[in-house]
Nucleic acid binder design. Structure first.
Lengths: 341, 341
DNA sequence: TCAAATGATGTAAAGGATTACATTCATCAC
DNA sequence: GTGATGAATGTAATCCTTTACATCATTTGA
């Protein structure tokens, strides 16, 4: 079942079979048919290792994310994999569990597998790890790594747009006291989100009130704790934005536990639009992170580099607000009081 | 940067370098050191294609799931991938989106990539698709496909145990009227779960009341609709089990919308223990599906087959009940009434 | 001391495709 | 009829590693 058998059966040389296989022009119609039939009859499939060995390309892309278990990623993976498979490219896939050391390993492994390109869709990236890829001649694309934006192709997402829309919405509802649940500032993405939030605040001529910014761990638990802190304040915000949906869900839980009703007594807005955002009660208003588009751009970008095309620069992607049920006009009660109807 | 360069630098033959690379015994200590140094200095990595071409094994496993976006799967993927990478095996990963035709494709693609083995962790499996793999000599392992259990290695999960525990719990709380939200019966897994439920009911000497079995689509929306149906009954159950957590979440939403408080007025138990189960309010009591163990067994099984070992038969895995906040003693009110304290 | 056994290393074939270059054959112009 | 042209096909080198077998050096046993 190698190409030679097919060649024999079709009474041609291996070269001709190869030409048919790869759609090269200049094979007579009749020969073509004969070869095709032979291929079909033997249901022959070419050996990808032999092919890659010779050609130097594997049609294999690497995809690295932070954490499969984080519901942010599945959609991104899905989109990336879908595009790849439509183009006959296979994806090998790993995750770092947020550990930069593991990123190093992941990249090494992928290079050893001689992937054609790597999409590093993690929140944290150390340049050192990327250098391996550069050295090995494997193109890389990153997600939202502004610090490395001039050195590596980068799919950018303009968080600020999302926050502005969220603030527009809250202001329109009448909110003026707006809190924020940030993530740990050593986390790249968390830092970016916080900066985007404060920047959006200023753009709306609101000033940043530090005690209204609590910090969580980007997970549900941390969001709950952060919200508890905000709720314990003498004067507390009437609306709270969270850096991600998981923390927003935690915030909802904290509010519920404190018998503060969302959205009547408090408005909450998340970020990302995870599937859970629409499953919790009340359904969470949130800023949709365009992760399918991120995946698509990342893929396309790699594809272009691999094919030696000019890589196109894109404007950053824009996240947009999705209004669901967790926002309403503020209660305007005296500070600390709890609405009972 | 091929093995010959390394050989030259270390003043040995390519055979010796290969021996060092693959940890074969019988290389003198000194030579070994020399070769190692050469490898390190040139930071040489062997070409996996050439290697696979020669050896006939790729150290590549395929993993096929139904749907990445279904929060059931990430943990399974995570576990599988973790085991693989610890053993120097890479995973190529696809999903069928519940479409048996795509399964066929997925398997074909993996065979074309000459993976060493395939884990088919989908709820639906058509034997026809598997035959490709058999024909190509690629071992396959399935998840919970009882119909194919004698033909293909199979990781079984005994749903019934979980349901029994759930019923034990509900009965102990005092429930006697127990409803069920089933999934579409053309879905393999949904059918299995329903059968397990009725069987568990009978094991507890409760009889199966057909109007208390509603059917959803295994998604949140379907769970909500099914629960609405159950709630509209004259005489309705005091507790409801759902075939999966997504539908249980939908059930929670329906109850909330109908101002029926869970668990005071109605107990709800899910199945799977998805991450959302602990995020919703009230935190969902559920039956934990041992999906990490499923992944581990699947992986181990494939590994054994690939290495030509005797494949071990395991007893089925047991799912267990996790009690959270969505179950409580029944209200014992007159039918249709709503508790107001 | 010598044959045999053992240990370390080397040589070269094999694995299956692609592809530069060579060849064949038909066609055409003159 | 002949040489040139171009289309179709073939030959064989190449990609890089593994590994059966060969070789050579050293040790062992009598």
């Amino acid at each position: 079942m190698d190409i030679l058998q097919v060649a024999k059966r079709a009474n041609v040389s291996t070269a001709t079979v190869s030409r048919v296989l790869n759609g090269f022009p200049g094979v007579r119609e009749k020969t073509l048919a004969r070869v095709r039939r032979a291929i079909a009859e033997m249901n022959y499939v070419p050996n990808p290792n032999a092919r890659s060995l010779r050609v130097g390309r594997t049609r294999l892309f690497g995809l690295i994310v932070s954490d499969v278990n984080n519901p942010f990623f599945p959609e991104l993976i899905d989109a990336f994999e879908g595009l790849a498979s439509a183009r006959g490219i296979e994806v090998i896939f790993t995750h770092t569990n947020y550990d930069p050391k593991r990123l190093h390993n992941c990249i090494r492994r992928m290079i050893e597998r001689s992937v054609d390109a790597i999409a590093v869709m993690t929140s944290e990236v150390e340049e050192e790890s990327l250098r391996q890829a550069t050295k090995a001649g494997v193109p890389v694309v990153l997600m939202n790594q502004r610090k490395l934006a001039d050195k590596y192709p980068n799919v950018l997402v303009e968080y600020e747009t999302g926050f502005r829309e969220a603030l527009d919405h809250l202001l329109a509802l009448g909110h003026r006291e707006i809190g924020f649940i940030a993530g740990p500032q050593w986390l790249n993405s968390a830092q970016g989100r916080k900066e985007a939030f404060t920047s959006a605040l200023r753009a709306h001529a609101l000033h940043v009130k530090n005690e209204w910014i609590a910090t969580g761990d980007m997970r549900v638990e941390g969001g709950r704790a952060a919200m508890e802190k905000l709720l314990s304040l003498k004067q507390r915000p009437t609306a709270v934005l969270a850096s991600n949906d998981l923390m927003a869900v935690g915030a909802l839980q904290a509010a519920h536990a404190a018998k503060i009703r969302v959205p009547r007594d408090l408005s909450v807005i998340g970020f990302d639009d995870l599937p859970i955002a629409s499953m919790v009660h009340p359904a969470l208003s949130t800023i949709r992170h365009p992760r399918r588009e991120v995946a698509a751009r990342a893929f396309e970008c790699l594809q272009q580099i691999v094919q030696g095309e000019e890589i196109r620069g894109w404007p950053p992607l824009q996240p947009h607000l999705l209004v669901r049920d967790s926002t309403a006009p503020p209660a305007r009660l005296r500070p600390g009081a709890i609405s009972r109807r």
